[in-house]
Amino acid sequence: MKKETKTAEKKPTLSWYKRMDFSKKTALWGIIFLLPWLIGLVFFFLRPLVNTLWYSLCSMEMVNGKFSGTFIGVDNFKYVLGVNANYTRYLAESFTNMAKEVPFQIFLALFIAMLLNGEYRGRGFFRAIFVIPIILATGVATFELAEVKMSTATTESVMDMKWLEDLIVNSGIPQQLTSLLVTYVQNIFKVVTTCGVQILLFLSGLQAISPTLYEVAKMEGCTQFETFCKITLPMVSPTILVCLVYSIAESFASATITVGDSTQSFSSYIQSITFNGSPEYYGYGAAMSFIYFAATLVTVGVVCGIVSKGVFYYD
């Protein structure tokens, strides 16, 4: 008996794992590493996504703590788009806001990142300051109280820019352009606070550009502007694409709409309709959510399709 075990030890048969070749092992471990995320994707993302679509086609009921629906076709969608007088208006509003905000956001983020990049005194200090917008963007530090109607004494701002506004409006530039400009300037607080992540992305994109490229450009006698157009812009163009996707998604997710005199976030509007107590509204709310999501996806798809044509990949 002893002898037999000894021989068995001498020639151990390799386990199935050890017999596998390296590329297969890599694939196996790739799936294992991805497993938590895959479970999440299937159960907490794809299934809810499909369910949302299903709810939106149903009239919902709550039975015994469980949702159940009866299929009613596209009635909910018809109701949202056709009967509800506000939804399409809100959707259009968030679209126009997005179209106004995102380009300015990207431009400002690139501009700030370029200023922050490079060697100068106090660099660490300024870089630290410009990450604070990420905290501000969460909306904790900037608030508007619903109850409080401020008296005119405080709304009269310390930095009154009315004269500048008048100057721009009366300068003879087309009115659409000036009004856009004025909105940008008035919203600069909001835009700066929403572009923290983009600044971070651009900063790292700029750091990744090899300094030798700039040296060559200098030797060849490029002006600063040419250097920007021929080197900086193409090299950060992949980052621009990423920032666009992020900005558009964020802009939709935090879209605000005007209800009467006050503003409200789009998502809280949908939430208030969905959870107003009666389960019949669940299907209706799901249809709203689904249209909202489809609009985001289509916009991102179209914009990316156009922009990615101009993106330059170095390697």
């Binding site: 890599t26 694939a27 196996l28 471990w29 790739g30 799936i31 590493f33 991805l34 895959l38 994707l41 907490f44 993302f45 794809l46 299934r47 809810p48 996504l49 369910n51 949302t52 709810y55 949702f67 996707v245 992020y246 558009i248 998604a249 939709f252 997710a253 998502s267 949908i270 939430q271 969905t274 669940y282 709310g285 799901a286 959510s289 689904f290 909202y292 999501f293 985001t296 996806l297 991102v300």
Partner: peptide
């Protein structure tokens, strides 16, 4: 650790960034 379909799955990562979490609100709640 690339495997077959890993790039397709990465598309879903982009999808999770793009889809506003609010639109899955009800279903995730369920």
């Amino acid at each position: 650790l690339k495997f077959k379909g890993s790039n397709i799955l990465f598309f879903f990562v982009i999808l999770t960034i793009v889809v506003p979490s609010d639109s899955l609100m009800l279903a995730q709640y369920a």
